[in-house]
């Protein structure tokens, strides 16, 4: 009995920190009716110094167009390994993209900024369409993009 309790205490002690370190975050991006084809979107994070920290999502599967996501492309050199396993289809005008991710708790309130670059075929590229600091306080607050994004919000 005593060994069972000890085992339970040990597994609980090991599990709780893991749960506390991850947050399920939903990123919701709604596009304007800009009257063009599906938009390519790169969602990525920079650290407090402005350096690229990593990508969260890539909407659009053909790497030949990634150069039009200019800031993301400049930061990554177009390295598709950065978005392996986090890539989906491009998003049509007027549509809403919802992506739910288990993100590290350390990303919040630590100076990180989430950026979105956008590009649409035959229309203007829009780097840094959205730039929003990742804070617990900012969760649930919609922000507007510059050209193609009607609103972006992250919820935890």
């Amino acid at each position: 009995m005593k060994s069972l309790l000890g085992t339970l205490a040990l597994t609980t002690a090991l599990t709780i920190p893991g749960l506390a370190m991850a947050r399920s975050v939903t990123l919701t991006t709604t596009l304007n009716n800009y009257g063009g084809d599906g938009a390519y979107l790169a969602l990525y994070v920079t650290d407090a110094s402005g350096a690229y920290a990593g990508s969260l999502w890539m909407a659009g599967g053909k790497s030949k167009y990634y150069e039009h996501l200019r800031d993301w492309y400049r930061a990554t050199g177009g390295d598709t390994a950065q978005v392996n396993g986090i890539t989906g289809a491009s998003v049509g005008a007027g549509r809403t993209l919802e992506v739910t991710l288990d993100l590290a708790d350390a990303l919040f309130d630590a100076g990180y900024t989430l950026h979105i670059d956008a590009a649409v075929e035959d229309l203007r590229d829009s780097p840094n369409e959205v730039a929003v600091p990742l804070t617990a306080e900012g969760a649930g607050t919609p922000v507007q993009g510059r050209r193609y994004i009607a609103s972006f919000v992250y919820d935890m």
Binding site: G54, S55, A81, G85, I86, V99, D102, L103
Partner: peptide, 16 residues
């Protein structure tokens, strides 16, 4: 990718 942003390697849930 193991870029330190994703905590447990779970695949993203996506909906359009």
């Amino acid at each position: 990718p193991q870029n330190g942003l994703f905590e447990n390697g779970a695949p993203p849930q996506v909906q359009v």
